[in-house]
Simulated assay, not measured.
Amino acid sequence: MSVSSSALPFEDIRNLVRTMPTADTGAVEAARLRDAQLTKPAGSLGKLEEIAEWLAAWSGPEWPKVKRPLVAIFAANHGVTAKGVSAFPADVTRQMVENFSAGGAAINQICIAHDLGLKVFELALDYPTPDITEMDAFDEAGCAATMAFGMEALAGGTDLVCIGEMGIGNTTVASALLNALYGGTAADWVGPGTGVDDTGLKRKCAAVEAAVARLGGEKDPLEILRRIGGREFAAMAGLVLAARHQRIPVIVDGFVTTAAVAVLQAMDPGALDHCLFAHVSAEPAHERALQAMGKQALFDFGMRLGEGTGAALAAGLVKAAAQVHTGMATFEAAGVSGKSEA
């Protein structure tokens, strides 16, 4: 799929969702046939076998491989931080982006450990989106253009992409998006984020309540994103949509990234079939969000850092699953007796 640098109207985005390719069932069957011939009891590698099939479904070849994995981090700032919803000032977003560039962050080390590429995309850090308790985050053109930017972030080629984010205040935005999409109260979706105290938690709840109330019951997922989202959310949603059209498997990180892609699933229940969810965040509402979406994460390590760290760890598992599937010998090639017929 190719996209221009001009803004995509929402109707064009809806059309991209309507025309998403489906899984390659032939490749899945071929992967299952090969798996049945490998030197191991059937099903003995559990989730690794499922991951290999998922790779085949979205990358096509009978022997799925991961040769060019990429972690894509989108960084943005949010006007809602003026409401005291974070334990850290907005300046930390830029400082952490500089830390990524210097190789000093946790995500840098995980990428080194698993041989993953890393790209960081700054989204107008000096111009935060408006305070969503008072104003819309975007106009339609701005939201669509940011989604298009996310789509173009795949340029250069990759065969597995992990999405991550950095943005002081973005757990508040994520909570507002999920509250608007799935209902309940603000308290159902708000957590400590970067470590706010009880007073800060009350401010976050109040901000989410105000942002969602301002929607007036709006149910259109793209309008919800436009009005109470943020730049990294729109960009990640755009990347995931483009990845679907290019048949690139995606690993979703934690709470904030889940909120971003939930917008797409709200548009089409199958929109995230090409995605794996890496981990259950320690942010309390993440598990609630996964349950609402009918998704199951690969692991729960009590993480809540963001930066794509959980997705990058999961990429190591995906690479291992691909290597096992492609590198193991078959019973015939190894001269090992297969299961006897009773």
Rank of each mutant, 00 (worst) to 15 (best):
L8P: 03
L8S: 02
P9I: 00
E11S: 15
D12T: 07
N15Q: 13
G26I: 05
P41H: 14
S44L: 13
K47L: 08
E50C: 06
I51F: 10
W54C: 01
L55I: 05
A57W: 08
W58Q: 05
S59M: 05
W63T: 03
K65A: 13
V66Y: 15
K67D: 14
L70M: 14
A72V: 15
I73C: 06
F74T: 11
H78F: 06
G79N: 04
G79M: 11
G84A: 02
P89I: 03
T93W: 01
T93D: 00
R94W: 03
A106T: 04
N108E: 11
H114T: 15
H114F: 06
D115Q: 02
L116G: 10
L118K: 13
E122Y: 01
L125C: 12
D126S: 10
P128T: 03
P128N: 13
T129I: 12
P130E: 11
D131R: 13
I132V: 08
A144H: 13
A145G: 08
T146M: 15
F149N: 00
M151E: 10
L154A: 07
L178Y: 09
T185K: 12
D188E: 11
W189T: 10
V190H: 02
P192A: 15
G195Y: 14
T199H: 03
T199Y: 11
A206H: 10
E209I: 01
V212F: 09
G217H: 10
P221E: 01
L222M: 05
L222A: 08
E223D: 09
R226L: 08
L239C: 15
V240I: 03
R244A: 15
Q246G: 11
P249M: 06
I251C: 03
D253M: 05
G254T: 05
T257M: 06
T258N: 05
A259V: 13
Q265E: 06
G270Q: 04
A271Y: 10
A271C: 09
A271R: 04
D273K: 04
L276G: 00
F277W: 11
H286K: 06
E287T: 04
R288M: 07
Q291S: 07
Q296Y: 02
A297N: 04
F299V: 12
G306R: 02
G310A: 01
G310H: 01
A314Y: 07
G316N: 05
L317F: 14
A320W: 00
H325E: 11
G327F: 08
A329H: 07
T330R: 12
E332H: 09
E332L: 03
A333E: 13
V336C: 12
S337H: 00
K339E: 03
S340P: 14
